[in-house]
Amino acid sequence: MKHIIWAASLLLSLPAVASENIAAVGSTTVLPVVSQAATAFHAMHPDVKVMVSGGGSGVGIAAMIQGTAQLGMASRETSPEEQAKLDGKVDNIIIASDAVAVVVSKAVYMSGIHALSLAQIADIYRGKVRNWKDLGGADARILVIDKEASRGTRHVFAKAVLGSSHARAAGASIISGSNNEEQSIVSRSNNAIGMLSNAWLNDAVRGVDVIVHGQAIAPTIEHVRDGTYPIARGLHVLLAKNASKNTRDFVQFLLSHDGQAIVQKVGYLPVH
């Protein structure tokens, strides 16, 4: 009996290692950078673990307000209400910039849709245009992919295209969550349009140019850098003012040369 108790207590007592856990929560756009940086940081500081999870910018900001995470990730500015709750408690640090690309399925791109104006995109999302034919493409209904209201990408996109960050999209036909989920819906369809960070573009998911003042501008890092692409944004991490030294070190690492190399590798524009 004694042996059993002893073995059980051994099994149950979790080894207490003197290490620190940093929970990073939020935008799935920022997630790849922080996640890869976390692995690199852990290699340098074995006693620090950065635990990364997604959920969206709104989730990250909510977690900082509630104090359930040490690091928030957001792919948009904080709203005034959020700012009021966060005020004085959190530093908002931009670690990279990217473009919110207007993406279409490969088939749509091949059928001749290479560029859309902001007004055309707005018409699609408001439900005024429902067929690719009206925009010069093939005769097919448009699969309009909207995002969950909490997603930073949606805020930025809706603000640039529809005028306000929480504008309704009456033309939407499906709601997606993370960037990965949206990417998979676009690549599986032949008629989809959606919004994605430029790092998620690939052969099956093509970014169309956005027409500004008669000029078609591709969603590339270069156009984010020179400021011509209209739907660009900063990628933020939120750091509590009373954060631990290791958490600060990790943010410093994100801003360092090595951290910014990861930013570049993922496909975003470094801050320097």
């Binding site: 080894p15 990364v52 989920e181 998979s184 599986r188």
Partner: peptide
């Protein structure tokens, strides 16, 4: 989502197979 290989204490989060499947299921391409 990631970053835990062994929970240090009862108050540390974990990763699990179930939720891992859920996250990866959405990895389209």
């Amino acid at each position: 989502f990631s970053g835990v290989d062994w929970p240090d204490s009862m108050l540390s989060p974990v990763t699990s197979l179930q939720t891992h499947i859920f996250y990866l299921a959405q990895e389209g391409s």
